[in-house]
Design a protein around this nucleic acid. Structure first.
Lengths: 335, 335
DNA sequence: CCGGCCAGGGAGAGCGCTTTCTTGACATTG
DNA sequence: CAATGTCAAGAAAGCGCTCTCCCTGGCCGG
């Protein structure tokens, strides 16, 4: 099947009339090679179409020039249209491209998958590991960190071992959102909280509480898992318990979208009867009916910053243990 | 930084009191090792926490146990919320997981990216390459195929060299959609076509024409690039040229979604005044207003099948040059 | 004119693994 | 009982690369 042996360093060396060592030096950009020889080597390289064998290189350098991006999410959310994972992937890919490193994607939804990720990453097959959106107190990031393997998480890890992470200012963002509801006269403000085993879910609820309590208002909470289905269910629940609510803050745009539809289904007008604010600012948010007000988080930037931190870690530099990016309240028509 | 040397085959061998060769045999599941020894080796492996060094293994086996998934798309569409790429990724990841291979993700949006992908893939750093959604007549898949590197594309490649691919029945699906419009009495049916440098864009337009022409109706076409923005623009264009149109088939759900909104903005009711059908069946389609009728394509299945084909190719088996998966007309309220 | 210095280039030792080839220990058979 | 066959396990040769020596020769200063 395979056509012609790929040329090796040896072949290039013979062709250029130099030693392997010299070719290696030229290929790796060492400056201690005289220009004429350098040119000869480069010519030989192009003539032969030489491409270094990365496996061989890794074997001696102990680097793999690739990093893993682990998505420990159950299948449902990973590729729901909230654009979280695609955003992270894209940000990471951009930074890695600049660094000439490869992105190895691993889905750790199932227990088997999780175990596989563990074997692969602890086996030092990658120079570092990026975790997108942890569930609960996954011990893996901490374990890797203790093994000296560079790790960066998106979202503060709930586990015991401190691991560097990049997150957004959930609480601040939610606070601004709820404050806006208060400022526009809403007094019966409910929330659809996210899953309480994820930092995002927890902190967005905390943000809601932190804004509601000082105002002396009651907390009305229903829980979802960030998906539309769960958002619809939570909205019904909220409506049953508090038919007179006049605002809903949902911890994800998907849930907010479902709330919009559910409210309408019950004959309520948005924003006249009930104001709604979501979280994420997914593309669809601008196209809901009415367009959704929401708290924007810079997802792609999270991916980029995580990667940059990881690369610095892998290079032996020390980094800030946490990076918190700002969120922004985007006002459209729903509130 | 690195804690303790990772154990090597040698270490395991010493500990188990056998030779490296034997350990290798056990690790790789050869049957020619007596059970007691086998057990001793396995114990040594766990005690030492031995994990094989993949680079070393690749070096001798000439396999890398990883495949590249290349997305040659410009940034905009790759992570727009049409769920195309996430779906492909997920399907591919599932199959690869089962095969114990790694997924290396490469974005080839920019010319630099494209060149990098070329270097990487031709350098045989992967056992095979998956192309998601080609733009125009990219010569890369053909070139790789000629080098004997396993390649599978999603969507029939437009280039000269035939390359194995997996695609869906665009034409059949669109045909059914337009036929449904005709059956429900629509006679002034326009289309928002996709980009004409992509098979999907081309074939969906062909499908429209193939249904419209026999009915003796005029073809009303405006072009978009699958995004909402372009869909809105195309709708305005169509409306300006044919204010009396009574149906629109859009080549993507995103464009159909924009059409829905634009039609409403001009005071038209859907489906009463104008029927709309999209293509893709993204999650949002069920949540538009009104819920969007559309042609569903099994995106994740495409990813799975591509991967399965690739693995067979990599295993030296021969495969069908093309696999065409069925599409399905999903009727909701917009038509 | 000679010694010393240094930049430039080569030799060679592995990196950790797989895989033939070979040996040795037994079992089988005439 | 010797000769042959069989099967398990070891020895050793690399896979293609990097990198540490070490050597060579050109140049300068004394």
């Amino acid at each position: 099947m395979t056509t012609a042996q790929r040329p090796t360093l040896e072949a290039v060396a013979r062709r250029a009339g130099v030693s392997r060592a010299t070719v290696s030096r030229v290929v790796n950009g060492s400056t201690t090679v005289a220009e004429p020889i350098r040119a000869a080597v480069r010519r030989a390289v192009t003539e032969l179409g030489y491409v270094p064998n990365l496996a061989a290189r890794s074997l001696v350098t102990q680097r793999t020039d690739s990093v893993a991006l682990v998505m420990p999410e159950a299948a449902t959310r990973v590729f729901s249209d909230d654009q979280y994972f695609p955003g992270i992937i894209r940000g990471a890919a951009q930074e890695l491209e600049a660094a000439e490193k490869q992105l190895v994607l691993m889905l750790a939804g199932s227990p088997a998958g999780h175990e596989r990720v563990e074997r692969y990453t602890t086996g030092r097959h990658v120079d570092g590991v990026l975790f997108a959106s942890l569930h609960g107190a996954d011990p893996l990031p901490g374990r890797l960190a203790r093994l000296g393997i560079p790790v960066v998480c998106s979202g503060r890890p709930l586990g015991g071992t401190p691991v560097p992470y990049v997150d957004v200012d959930h609480i601040g963002g939610v606070n601004r959102a709820v404050q806006h509801l208060l400022d526009s006269g809403r007094r019966r403000i409910a929330t659809i909280a996210g899953p309480q085993d994820m930092v995002g879910g927890i902190e967005r609820l905390t943000g809601y509480q932190a804004a509601i309590t000082p105002a002396g208002l009651p907390e009305w909470v229903a829980y979802g898992d960030f998906t539309r289905e769960s958002g619809a269910a939570a909205t019904w629940q909220l409506l049953a318990a508090h038919p007179d609510l006049d605002a809903i803050f949902a911890a994800s745009d998907l849930m907010a979208h479902a709330a919009l539809r559910t409210l309408r289904a019950t004959g309520r007008r948005v924003p006249d009867d009930v104001a709604v604010i979501g979280f994420d600012d997914i593309e669809t948010a601008a196209y809901t009916d009415p367009p959704l007000s929401t708290v924007r988080q810079p997802i792609q930037e999270i991916g980029r910053r995580m990667t940059r931190q990881l690369l610095r870690l892998a290079a032996g530099e020390s980094i800030e243990p946490a990076l918190v990016l700002p969120t922004e309240l985007i006002l459209r028509d729903s509130a």
